[in-house]
Amino acid sequence: MANLKSLKIRINSVKATQKITKAMKMVAASKLRRAQEAAEAGRPYAERMERIIASLGSSVEGRDDAPALLAGSGKDDVHMIVLATADRGLCGGFNSSLARAARRRIIELRGAGKTVKLLCVGRKGNDALKREFGSIIHDTVTFAGVRQISFGDQALPISTTLQQMFADGEFDVCSIFYNRFESALVQTVTEQQLIPTPLPEAAETVDLGGAAYEYEPDESEILEELLPRNMAVQVYRALLENAASEQGARMTAMDNATRNAGEMIDKLTLTYNRQRQAAITTELIEIISGAEAL
């Protein structure tokens, strides 16, 4: 049994840890609110863009001059996987579940005889996969020091790089792995295909009163501009969802850690008090038996 002094030291150290986890939880909670607001604010744009693409895409679908981003390169030999993770740890299973999902997908694709390339967004994904797949990691982008993910500074460059690589024929299919934000407690690992652009189902069909859309300039030209835009928006949305999920996961993890630390303190304090009482009792017995002996 540990002595009184070491117990006291242990209690104090757990208390210090609890203070840290508690502070981290509160920081995550306030960041979560901001991230959630950003994710919600970005939704209208993505939704409206989806609607336009749905109506445009169906009209050019199957035509020979359909843009490559929509039609694909005609092959599916080389897959590009974008893995969006966090830059920091201490957020429960957030990073590891993403890395696990990506790993499973890579192995599955390799089993089917495809070549796989990897782009890590966020340091943790790179850390988790570099031992096994170091040779196929194309690049790693980190957002260290970025307080709020913005469209122009983070999402656009990633999407532009990917489109350039696609245009150079470096891969045929591209998909992104991220955690979709359901609530502070639940985040789901999601795989979304970016290239070729999947045609969204028209969620609501607008009643045009019998008239058809006029396009200015023509469909394919609009699509040519719209598709890269759409991809950037999808990346942006994934990053925002991921950021919100990260904070949610961290908040939950830190909440658990704080609770565990509290339990541990209670247990240790109980042992401490019991031992102190035992020491007092022993001392008393010694004094009494000393007095009786006289």
């Binding site: 336009i52 109506s55 445009l56 607008v206 045009l208 008239a211 058809a212 859309y213 006029e214 396009y215 200015e216 300039p217 030209e221 609009i222 501009e225 719209l226």
Partner: peptide, 15 residues
């Protein structure tokens, strides 16, 4: 070219 949109405009998608 610039265009104005009034109520009842024909459906258009433009860049």
């Amino acid at each position: 070219g610039d265009f104005g949109v009034l109520p009842g405009h024909a459906p258009v998608i433009s860049t």
